[in-house]
Design a protein around this nucleic acid. Sequence first.
RNA 1: CGGGGCGUAGCGCAGCCUGGUAGCGCACCUGGUUUGGGUCCAGGGGGUCGGAGGUUCGAAUCCUCUCGCCCCGACCA
Length: 435
Amino acid sequence: MDLVMKLSTYFLPTLKETPSEATVVSHRLMLRAGMISQSTAGIYSWLPLGLRVLKKVEQIVREEQDRMGGQEVLMPLLQTAELWQESGRYDGYGKEMLRMQDRHERDLLFGPTAEEVITDIFRRYIKSYKALPKCFYQIHWKFRDEIRPRFGVMRGREFLMKDAYSFDVDKESAVNTYRAMMRTYLKTFQRLGLAVIPVRADTGVIGGDLSHEFHVLAQTGESQVYYDKKFDTFRENIDQVDVDEIMGLYAMADEMHKPEECPLEGEDLREARGIEVGHIFNFGTKYSEILNAKVVLADGSSIAPEMGSYGIGVSRLVGAIIEANHDEQGIIWPESVAPFQVALIGLGGTVEVSEVCERIYKDLEKVGVSVLYDNRSEGPGVKFSTADLIGLPWQIILGPKGLQEGLAEIKCRRTGDRESIPLESLVSYMQEKLC
RNA sequence: CGGGGCGUAGCGCAGCCUGGUAGCGCACCUGGUUUGGGUCCAGGGGGUCGGAGGUUCGAAUCCUCUCGCCCCGACCA
């Protein structure tokens, strides 16, 4: 990705007024910040600024999947009906699944998930218990023809999802994989700057017996979650807490919460709003059995491997991050996903100011800091508003007055704190702030 | 899918009730002005009034049908 862009040429169609269709804050801000453009209900184009964020999120998710031993694959968008008929889900999935025919009148569908495809791959190549465990994942577009898409990219029909599928030789090994994925998820969400609670969940259409949903805590969340207050104290280093301990704590989504069965009382029980951004399942041999995927054991007998599947809504996360990180002025990106690290704002439109600004961004570029330079001939108010709206973590402001004294101002978007820094130490100061 | 709302310039809206051939703010273009919080002045371009049919001398406005978008509910990453 380019480290430096100038606003005079960058495609950033910001809006002063909120389009009337957007009611939730992340949707409003994504439209106003020129991140997305709606094509039709639940289907969006990602514009340059939004795409940068999406890719950042995607990359963090990918790195953590790789770290836990996942192997990335890319499966087809279109799947054949036969495979789904074989698994028995073709009729069961309902209208949410978009179905179509090719020119030969062969029945196809736009994949809403990929258990069938991955199991088909597995059964064609993997024959021995020695090859296990295996975990595959992809980050790919899904289409689910939701009854009612809403909230911008938080509930689109077309959405970017990380879906992973695991195969283990037995239950015990499968539960280990499940725990490893739990740890991976906690780490992933922590890197994304989100407070997340893993709640016990219903296994729904996917089936199975062990399942957690991951909810980003945000006041505007769609679902109510109930959880042990210990989660609040884990927040900072949740990835280092023992996974069994976390799984042992009480945490339930609304529909699973039974006050009479809840072991917590009063202060110990926290209630909050959450946005579901991830869901993990262990579902045993449901698909391996029905699709006849088998491995041979040491004793020559064969078994159907234990499977799990693990989803993260990558595009939904972009919305969820905004829900959890914004103020009246606009978005406040966590540094890990910010489309650029620094907004460089040149004021006054003098040659001197622009020359120094050019030098600043070149110096920052050299040390790997990404900068969006507002070199438009707009007044200061417009530039400040734009910078606050798009929410880059740091603003470097240089005006004629500061230049005379050899000072630039650095503003932290999140706290609003401002500091005047001598121009010559600007780069090292920024490097320090960003590490 | 059930209930509700809305489609008029890129965006936000007025006009519709009570028909007479479209207007305001922002954005955009030109010239000037301004430069530490969406500056000010002047001029300008842009609209098959979502679509089709009907009533009428005449329809953004009334009637019928249709398409789309949004909100509330059941489902989901």
